[in-house]
Lab assay of single mutants.
Amino acid sequence: MQIFVKTLTGKTITLEVEPSDTIENVKAKIQDKEGIPPDQQRLIFAGKQLEDGRTLSDYNIQKESTLHLVLR
């Protein structure tokens, strides 16, 4: 499924993921596309910060959901 990741600069990254993918996994995909190390990434969905060990389905993230990427 496709999800979108919006950065603070207003750029939107499109990722191909599975509901069973972990947040860690998603961060690795963002690193592949954008070169941002996962340890600098914070992903936010519905106002919650997403934890590395959880999966997209844990957070009920469905196709075409938009996550927000904050760098630390």
Rank of each mutant, 00 (worst) to 15 (best):
M1D: 12
M1R: 03
M1F: 13
M1L: 07
Q2C: 02
Q2T: 11
Q2E: 05
Q2V: 07
I3Q: 00
I3A: 01
I3P: 00
I3F: 01
F4K: 08
F4M: 04
F4G: 06
F4L: 07
V5F: 05
V5C: 02
V5N: 00
V5M: 03
K6E: 09
K6Q: 14
K6H: 14
T7H: 09
T7M: 05
T7L: 05
L8Y: 10
L8D: 05
L8C: 02
T9F: 08
T9Y: 10
T9K: 06
T9W: 14
T9E: 10
T9C: 03
G10Q: 06
G10M: 04
G10I: 14
K11I: 15
K11D: 07
K11P: 12
K11V: 12
T12D: 08
T12V: 08
T12S: 10
T12F: 13
T12H: 08
I13E: 02
I13Q: 03
I13M: 05
I13V: 08
T14F: 09
T14L: 07
T14H: 05
T14Y: 14
L15P: 00
L15W: 01
L15F: 10
L15Y: 03
E16I: 13
E16A: 07
E16C: 02
E16G: 14
E16F: 11
V17A: 13
V17C: 02
V17L: 11
V17N: 02
E18T: 06
E18C: 02
E18R: 08
E18V: 10
E18Q: 04
P19A: 13
P19H: 10
P19T: 10
P19V: 14
S20C: 02
D21E: 11
D21K: 08
D21I: 09
D21R: 05
D21S: 14
T22M: 04
T22S: 15
I23K: 01
I23N: 01
I23E: 01
I23Y: 02
E24W: 15
E24V: 13
E24Y: 14
N25P: 01
N25E: 05
N25T: 08
N25S: 07
N25H: 07
V26A: 04
V26G: 00
V26T: 06
V26Y: 00
K27G: 01
K27S: 02
A28V: 12
A28E: 11
A28H: 07
A28C: 02
A28W: 10
A28P: 01
A28Y: 15
K29S: 10
K29F: 05
K29G: 10
K29I: 09
K29P: 00
I30P: 00
I30S: 01
I30H: 00
I30F: 03
I30K: 00
I30G: 01
Q31I: 03
Q31Y: 13
Q31P: 02
Q31R: 05
D32N: 08
D32Y: 11
D32T: 15
D32Q: 10
D32P: 03
D32C: 03
D32A: 12
K33D: 10
K33P: 03
K33Y: 14
K33S: 07
E34K: 11
E34Q: 09
E34F: 14
E34T: 14
G35K: 09
G35T: 14
G35W: 13
G35L: 04
G35N: 15
I36G: 03
I36L: 06
I36N: 10
I36H: 13
P37N: 06
P37Y: 06
P37A: 13
P37E: 09
P37K: 14
D39R: 09
D39C: 03
D39K: 14
Q40V: 10
Q40A: 15
Q40P: 03
Q40H: 09
Q40E: 11
Q40G: 09
Q40I: 04
Q41S: 12
Q41F: 13
Q41R: 02
R42V: 10
R42Y: 15
L43C: 01
I44D: 05
I44A: 07
I44M: 06
I44L: 12
I44K: 11
F45T: 02
A46I: 11
A46D: 12
A46Q: 15
G47S: 14
G47F: 12
G47R: 11
K48P: 01
K48G: 06
K48A: 07
K48C: 02
Q49F: 12
Q49W: 08
Q49I: 07
Q49N: 06
L50E: 00
L50Q: 00
L50Y: 01
L50P: 01
L50N: 00
E51G: 10
E51A: 13
E51M: 06
E51T: 13
E51S: 06
D52L: 05
D52G: 04
D52T: 04
G53I: 14
G53V: 09
G53R: 08
G53F: 08
G53A: 10
G53M: 09
R54M: 10
R54P: 15
R54A: 14
R54G: 07
R54I: 06
R54T: 09
T55C: 02
T55L: 15
T55R: 07
T55G: 04
T55V: 09
T55H: 09
T55D: 11
L56Q: 00
L56Y: 01
S57Y: 09
S57R: 10
D58K: 03
D58I: 13
D58Q: 05
Y59F: 11
Y59C: 02
Y59A: 15
N60M: 07
N60Q: 05
N60T: 09
N60R: 08
N60C: 03
I61S: 01
I61E: 01
I61Q: 01
Q62R: 13
Q62T: 12
K63G: 15
E64I: 10
E64C: 02
E64D: 09
E64Q: 04
E64P: 03
S65V: 07
S65Y: 10
S65H: 09
S65D: 04
S65C: 02
S65W: 09
T66Q: 05
T66I: 14
T66Y: 10
L67P: 01
L67C: 01
L67K: 01
L67I: 08
L67S: 01
H68F: 14
H68K: 03
L69K: 00
L69G: 01
L69I: 04
V70Y: 05
V70H: 05
V70Q: 05
L71I: 11
L71A: 07
